[in-house]
Design a protein around this nucleic acid. Structure first.
Lengths: 210, 210, 210, 210
DNA sequence: AATGAATGAGCGTTCATTCAT
DNA sequence: CATGAATGAACGCTCATTCAT
């Protein structure tokens, strides 16, 4: 018990690295700092990871798998595409809000790293994202969603909004509670912002050319 | 006259830097490379900019001012909040698609730089974004939009979606034409994805019966 | 029995090390690589050898002993100093050509290592080289060689030529067959390159008239 | 005068590097040590040389050009192939004896470096070595040397002997004066070691089978 | 005897930045 | 205004070697 096993050691390094990378950013973090915080030598880190970037890429693998695994599990229990989308947004937001290091690393570091695209971690993410596509498609087929919506766009709206809010939250601290936005996001996406009870005013007129 | 020359030199450096940063990323770019491409000495760059990061922060100022200036100008000519949002999305997308260096620098570099928040360039952006807020608020007041929508959320949905699509476009080349998404984004946001002609299935029941 | 196994293990490591060192050079070879090819752990190598350099120095011991043992054996059977020198050159060349790993290690690595001078391996070599001295001296005493030749020089010419050809062979692949040079080397050394049948031209004049 | 020009600075670094490499060997030398002895920063060395190995390869260029330039010059003034070979051996030996750093670097470091083969410095050497070939060929044509000698072998005997003696001198300090060996080398090569005045004794008998 | 695990000690190289001219 | 020249300060990574088990 005093002696951590290899796998545990690896996880421990990942944990520390996640913390450091999230705090300082990737380039600004040094292996020296990570090794210091992990209370091992720099050389030992290279026993477990071939490269600093390799260590970075190892971070999301688990969290991403957890997230998308959980997602797949829950989606089976939920009826209705809208509700499923709600669950997805909830799981994203909850995951990011709970694990803000994961959020920082995903939003501020990995999202813009081209090499990450060829990674196990990204593979897990792609798989998870396909789920969203399927749900939207199901919604269309079941008649719950309009026939002419663009699946890719809707998915992008969901992910884009979640990412934007999360990034803002990380960078500025606003909003305080990401989860407060789950329902508004989904409701707005589902129902739009147009005020249909007011179709005779200048809005419709405008459409007619005034 | 001398000042004019200086100002031109500065712009030229910014132009080259924008190209290099967009191509290589910030950390991967070197002052040496920029100076080489700009055909001046490295030392000369420091006559115009105090620091490599200072040079980076100088890049968006103009483009951002252009973009938001144009935005302000056009918005005055357009009636109806929805149309104004459409114009905004169009101007963003057009700006990014036309000037992909600007897009890359904004999406991949500056968006995640905390120091950028205290910058002239970011100030211009904040000002521009307030415009979006105002428009949404006007839409609510005029009755064109629902009363209970969250202004911050709607703005985040617009920006998040635009940014997500743009980032994807930069990173993967998909979609080919950002501008193709202007109308779909706005239409979806305005009208939602719910199929209102089909309110008798389990979806509406679910909504009514919980 | 246990000792026998140990001794075999040691030899096996030496064999693998010889291969690796010959291929990559000393500095460029790693204990990791040797252990991998020898299918034992790195730590185990240190059970048999105190140090990487110690392992290196262990390599030639056997081959050198073999070579010089063989030399001593053969020289007893040969009459005439010239013939003995021929045998020596032959044995060197044959040994290097047959065992090119040994050749590489001797020519490219150990020849220039000052620490090797204090080694068992080098002791064996020194002993072998003394043989050459003795043979030359015998040749002088017997009147087969000139009286005024410098023993050290003749030995150096033999060894220098052999080493030069061998090194070239290792580095560039030329000449193809080292053994082709055995007779020419010895014949040239014995008889010189001067054309004695042509003593009336400007060459002899020059010698006589300067 | 106080401020060394670029070219002078470069030469100074080469000079110091030659000293350090000759003393310690290549792998054992560090850029830090060279920079310290040259009283410049490590970074500055990289202003003049792209790499540690590049610095190494720059060392012989000048000395080798000097040596082979001098050689070419002198050879024009000398008549007779034997005398020319004598001059060559003299120039080598003198060059090595006078500039023992050059000797060390050539004999102990560069001679075994495969990358050096593709270098400017090695090009100069190859050119110089061709001279030796030509001289031997001339000697054959003029009838001064035997017709059936192997040019490549004779050249190898000269170079091999010179290198062997030089290497020994560097490694062990023996012989004290390389130049003492110039005449013996050439004389022995020209005239051989066979004692022709004693053709009726046991030597010839031996040849006949006794 | 064998090794998994850990690391101390090092080193070449990069690059933003400075400053005398 | 322009820059050639110089460098301080880092840092990722390697590898021979040790030692508890």
């Amino acid at each position: 018990m005093a002696n951590l096993k290899t796998e545990e050691r690896k996880k421990q390094i990942i944990k520390v690295a996640a913390k450091v990378f999230a705090e300082r950013g990737f380039q600004e973090s040094t292996i020296a700092e990570i090794s210091k915080e992990a209370k091992i030598s720099e050389a030992s880190i290279y026993e477990y990871f071939t490269t600093k970037e390799g260590l970075l890429f190892s971070i999301p693998t688990e969290s991403a798998k957890d997230l998308f695994g959980l997602m797949e599990f829950h989606l089976k229990l939920i009826k209705g595409s809208a509700n499923k989308l709600r669950a997805i947004v909830y799981l994203f937001m909850d995951s990011y809000q709970t694990n803000n290091e994961f959020a920082s690393i995903m939003m501020l570091i990995l999202k813009h790293n081209r090499k990450f695209l060829d990674t196990e971690g990204h593979k897990a993410i792609r798989k998870g994202i396909k789920n969203i596509n399927s749900i939207i498609e199901e919604g269309i087929e079941s008649g719950e969603f309009k026939k002419d919506i663009n699946v890719y766009l809707v998915r992008s709206m969901i992910l884009g909004t979640v990412e934007h809010l999360t990034t803002n939250w990380i960078m500025t601290g606003t909003p305080d509670q990401l989860l407060d936005y789950v329902d508004p996001i989904v409701d707005t996406l589902i129902d739009g912002i147009s005020n249909r009870e007011n179709r005779s005013d200048h809005w419709s007129m405008q459409k007619n050319g005034t």
